[in-house]
Nucleic acid binder design. Structure first.
Lengths: 109, 109
DNA sequence: TAGTTATATAACTATATAGTTATATTTAAT
DNA sequence: ATTAAATATAACTATATAGTTATATAACTA
């Protein structure tokens, strides 16, 4: 599981958010997320595979901690888009191509 | 298709990269990517659904252009990780006591 | 020792999706 | 009018994966 895929799943992002705030055991994450224990364990496996978390065994508990390093890849990907984001973006919603429900195709070329 | 999912697929990231550099027609993207035309069209559909690209019809051609706005969501997600990235990252592997200063540790089980 | 707790994993189901080939649709060219 | 070109989509296959329930494993506890 790579970084992008690991972040693609919303529950996984939430789990990572929880782990970012403080190291968590599986049961803590079960409580915080409302997911079943196997579901959490499975997500944690993917997060481990993506190297986004590390595990510290402590008796029966496993403390999951954040490893933000792989997020550099996302940062790197986003980097070239950043100036476009800041220049184009702050101007509120210029993209008038919302021809979602209308068939009026505002084509000008 | 949401932003995270749209970026999860490597070919789709490559297509977006190409479109970022210059507006592209489908055939241009087929050439650049080596994917089949239906595969490209399918990826473009997801990118459209994620609002990451817009289309400008021009005769039989469709010019696909970048809309970076949805990337703000990724930026927002990454934001809280950014200081961790810069501080922890260069120094390899010592994130043991990252919670001892301000965090209340609420171990409840 | 027996039972309980914490976590992981196996087996399964259901869904999403990346690719394919074939075809439809629209526009351009003859 | 035909034909060709550009693109989209349908139908299909194969794979990944998010969830489930049941079970395995290891560590604690009485």
């Amino acid at each position: 599981m790579n970084t992008f895929n690991a972040l693609a799943e919303p529950n996984r992002r939430r789990l990572l958010e929880a782990i970012r705030q403080e190291p968590c055991t599986v049961n803590m994450l079960v409580s915080k997320s409302g997911l079943s224990q196997p579901a959490v364990s499975k997500h944690l496996r993917y997060l481990r595979e993506a190297d986004l978390v590390t595990v510290k065994p402590d008796g029966q508990k496993r403390w999951y901690e954040l490893n933000p390093a792989p997020l550099k890849e996302i940062e790197a990907f986003l980097e070239p888009y950043r100036q476009l984001l800041s220049s184009r973006l702050d101007a509120p919603e210029q993209h008038l191509d919302s021809m979602k429900s209308t068939k009026t195709k505002e084509i000008d070329n």
